[in-house]
Simulated assay, not measured.
Amino acid sequence: MVGPVADGSGAADVGTVVGVGTVIERMRGLRSGWPPRDGVAVFNEVYLRVTEALGARIGYGAFADRAAVSALDVRFAERYLAAVDTAEAGGDPPACWRPLFQFRGHPGLRPLQFALAGINAHIGHDLALAVVDTCRALDCAPRDLEEEFERVGDLLAVLEEQIRDGLMPGPDLLEVADPLTHLAGVWSLERAREAAWTAAGVLWRLRGLPLLAEEFRARTDAGVGLVGRFLLTPCR
């Protein structure tokens, strides 16, 4: 099981996942164990597509610093996998993930809501911690990862648009009146990415003050969880 250490730093035990390919295989294994309509399975499928696309780009040299991108991607994925492990063991995952796990079988929720709730948790809370984890592992500062962070973010933006197009209600005269259209419109990946980058900088500056760093992380976690609960408002 992969999970954060309880020292207030947000650092993860990163020795258990050794590459992007291992992360992909783990998510494929999770997919085979859950029914397709399960809310966590919906997000897992979305995240698997993102990670496969990123792994392919790393493989053919789309990134100048392949090692840094791989390290960031793996440590980012470990945060999600840790939440899954905790929930599957009957524990409480971080607050940002709890709405998705609690409402994963709700019949009044739509696939896009599950996808957005998972993306919100992962970007809003986990991404900043993954940046700090990667900086610790590579002995660098967040500014040294900014180019990789932005290029990965550009890929996420393209895939998010495809996800919305694939999971939104079909184009018809009632689409504008569908509550899901309005609910999905209030969340922005771009704003979540910007907030994650800012949070990573704050956590990096607080790395010598573990109690304060943990308080900041916990408050961020709670706020992201509140947004996730809103995104999982039943629409039918």
Rank of each mutant, 00 (worst) to 15 (best):
Asp13Phe: 06
Asp85Ile: 04
Asp126Gly: 10
His122Trp: 01
Leu129Cys: 11
Pro36Lys: 04
Ala141Arg: 15
Arg164His: 06
Ala77Trp: 00
Asp172Glu: 11
Val2Glu: 03
Arg31Trp: 01
Val224Leu: 10
Ala199Asp: 13
Gly55Asp: 09
Asp65Phe: 05
Glu147Trp: 09
Trp197Phe: 05
Ala82Trp: 00
Leu203Val: 00
Leu183Ser: 00
Gly10His: 10
Thr198Gln: 15
Ala11Asp: 08
Thr233Tyr: 05
Asp154Val: 13
Pro111Phe: 06
Asp65Arg: 12
Glu25Gln: 13
Pro93Phe: 11
Ala192Ile: 08
Glu214Cys: 03
Ala117Cys: 15
Pro99Arg: 09
Val69Leu: 05
Glu214Ser: 13
Gly225Thr: 02
Gly61Trp: 00
Arg143Gln: 15
Val176Ser: 14
Trp197Met: 01
Val17Tyr: 14
Gly59Val: 05
Gly21Ile: 05
Trp197Asp: 01
Glu146Gln: 14
Asp38Tyr: 03
Gly153Thr: 11
Leu211Met: 12
Thr233Asp: 01
Ile58Gly: 03
Ala67Pro: 08
Arg26Lys: 12
Glu150Cys: 15
Cys96Ala: 15
Arg236Ala: 15
His125Ala: 08
Pro93Cys: 02
Arg217Phe: 02
Phe63Cys: 04
Pro111Val: 06
Phe43Glu: 00
Leu138Lys: 06
Ile24Ser: 03
Ile119Cys: 02
Arg217His: 12
Val132Gln: 07
Ala121Pro: 01
Ser70Val: 00
Glu147Met: 13
Pro142Glu: 06
Gly225Leu: 07
Arg136Gly: 07
Ala195Glu: 13
Val18Glu: 13
Ala128Pro: 05
Thr51Ile: 14
Leu173Phe: 14
Arg219Ile: 12
Pro234Met: 10
Ala199Asn: 06
Leu116Pro: 01
Ala192Lys: 06
Val176Ala: 15
Arg26Phe: 03
Leu48Glu: 00
